[in-house]
Amino acid sequence: MIAIIKYNAGNISSVKNALTRLGYKSIITDDPEAILNAEKVILPGVGEASSAMKYLIQKGLDKVILSIKNPILGICLGLHIMCDYSEEGDTKCLNIFNAKVKKFPNRDIVPHMGWNNFNSIDGSLFNNISIDNNVYYVHGFYAEICSQTIATCDYIEPFSAAMQKDNFYATQFHPEKSADIGEQLLKNFLEL
């Protein structure tokens, strides 16, 4: 079973729908036991960092996430939550990745919204995906590039498109909305 962590972020059902299309069963839950027993966990997220962190702490889910041993994938805000700190709402995050989340400077349109290709990709999460492939982004904040960055993208500034440390994976883009390339990435994660 795949657990999708339920928290106060919008449109969580789109991740569940994507998994259903790939033939995987999933549950949307905030039950610690269900999350810890799941073969794979997804931390989705469209929302705001400080209220998301506040909610996770309130429910004790911050500690649950940190103790997950199976592969977990953070998406968009989920990636930010796994970083050290976010400028969005001046938020201390889970500090899994050693990177800060910053606001895009206003030199170009913000948010970064639409399809973008990669500057670099690395690792099994990107099996059968090439740097010229495009994935769908929508975000006003980005994670700096650090030693745990496994894919990079460029919009105003170079940033982390995906990150990994041990069993913790995260993407800034939305694989659940990234057509066939997104499905390939989800498949790669689910087959880890």
Binding site: S13, S14, R21, Y136, V138, K177, D180, G182
Partner: peptide, 8 residues
Amino acid sequence: IALEINIP
């Protein structure tokens, strides 16, 4: 639509 479509 949400079930079937994999783009925004």
